[in-house]
Amino acid sequence: MNAKLTVENLCHVYGENTPFRLAALDDVSFSVAPGELIGIIGHTGSGKSTLISHMNGLMKPTSGRILLDGADIWADPQKIRDIRFRVGLVFQYPEHQLFEDTVYRDIAFGPTNMGLDEDAVRERVEEAMEFVGLGPEYRNRSPFELSGGQKRRVAIAGVIAMRPEVLILDELTAGLDPRGCQELLGEICEFRRRTGCTVLLVSHSMDEVAEVADRILVMNHGHVEMFDAPGKVFAEAERIEAIGLTVPAVTKVFRLLADRGIPVNPSIFRRADALNALLSLRKGGRL
């Protein structure tokens, strides 16, 4: 299958030719299939923010290329704005970007910039509001009087309304309580299921992405440390812990169980899988 998004030997250097030269991205290469949900994990300073700013052309590579549907996004620098409509980027704390006096007008900002007519804009805004669980009653409310979680939904809807082919979310759930995290994550998964949109979820929490990601990209010091299915990534727990990240709690328990000589797969990370594994073990033991 053709890749949706391909990153080829991407390098980004800050302050070239100064004493402060810093290679934020060092020969990063990977590709993402259409409709995949990728978790991008790394601690602060691992280069993940720099990486995603390249995906929609907010930053220009020092060297290397980013291909969207096989075409270099910088092939025509005049058209970089069109790339930004196709690759939607939701920054950390996106509620800080809200500026319009109504929810509707704020969400309409992106589609309007695309040059769509009023009907098309309305259709997209309504659709986006539905995706993030904002009912029509929110249309004319001021985004500034909403709760934190709702403000964030408005901001996300503002990007979804551009109908991006790739949606990148940076620290989607930062600062939300457990229920808020789950709901928002659920809405994004549902959005992806219904639209087939490719989703990149950037986080510094393994627990958050383990449940939902098809593959996990682990960034460390500006390069790709690992890029594989969650089970395979967690199988190398030592390596993950060595770069200052943690594995999900269930994986921790299963690694300890394996150490204690119990025949379980130490890379299990979902609670349901854990339960099945343990129960089958018990049945096996009794037979």
Partner: peptide, 26 residues
């Protein structure tokens, strides 16, 4: 904020003075 608005297609760099001032609102 500028990056976030650019990601939504905001254009801070082209157009006449009037358009540019208006583009600063977001």
């Amino acid at each position: 904020i500028m990056s976030a608005q650019k990601a939504r297609g905001a254009d801070f760099e082209s157009g006449n003075v009037f358009r540019r001032v208006k583009a600063m609102i977001p």
